[in-house]
């Protein structure tokens, strides 16, 4: 997995609550058996004016000029600023794959749906929770100042604004450790093969019908 330490990135606002993973990557793209190539279809129904299907050349599709992702000032954004309950609905990991493939490395929102939140960490994507009033303040600043960037420091657990304000964020110690070091969960778990085998033997002796 890709390591995450520090990011100085342009911010893209997505001012809607309850953005679901169907919106992040619509179902027709889930037919792919690959893990990559979803970025051009991220937010497909909001981003393009036509109906998207897998394999389309997205550079030729009509863009929705009102959608923030299509506006010149947000091109190259790596930080997605969102509202509450981001990533709700389907467990599809294609959603973080699409966001990561598009170029995002950080999401900032007041809250996330559990499965999506968890899936982000498996893909080197850092979802940060900030209190609603701080997210509100960031939305105002991003919209007011073209080229608005934030510096996200995972080690220090801070987000620094251009004006020098630092917002502190929380992250579970284990997730932080894995992200900072780009650790592969499966590799970590396999260090405990003996513990798993011991558990399994005991568990199946207690419930032999399993």
């Amino acid at each position: 997995m890709r390591k995450f330490t520090l990011l100085d990135g342009l911010v893209l606002p997505l001012d809607r609550a309850n953005v679901d993973t169907d919106a992040i990557i619509p179902k027709q793209f889930l037919k792919s058996i690959s893990r990559s190539g979803f970025g051009p279809y991220a937010f497909d129904e909001w981003r393009y004016l036509d109906h998207g299907e897998p394999g389309m050349d997205c550079s030729k599709r009509p863009l929705n000029p009102e959608f923030s992702m299509n506006q010149a000032r947000y091109q190259g954004a790596q930080i997605l600023l969102a509202r509450e309950n981001f990533g709700c609905g389907s467990s599809r990991e294609h959603a973080p794959w699409a966001l990561e493939d598009f170029g995002f490395a950080v999401i900032i929102a007041p809250s996330y749906a559990d499965i999506f939140f968890n899936n982000c960490f498996k893909n080197g994507l850092l979802p940060i929770r900030l209190p609603e009033d701080q997210v509100d303040a960031l939305f105002k600043e991003v919209e007011a100042k073209p080229g608005y960037r934030l510096v996200v420091d995972l080690e220090a657990q801070t987000i620094r604004t251009p004006a020098g304000v630092a917002y502190k964020f929380e992250i579970e110690a284990f997730r932080k450790h894995c992200l900072l070091n780009g650790l592969d969960d499966i590799g970590l778990t396999l260090q405990h093969v003996e513990a798993i085998k011991t558990f399994e033997t005991k568990h199946r002796a207690a419930q032999p019908w399993l």
Binding site: R92, E93, N118
Partner: peptide, 12 residues
């Protein structure tokens, strides 16, 4: 679970 976790369960 997500697909990374599907693989995790398969392997561990």
């Amino acid at each position: 679970i997500g697909t990374s976790e599907v693989e995790h369960v398969m392997a561990t």
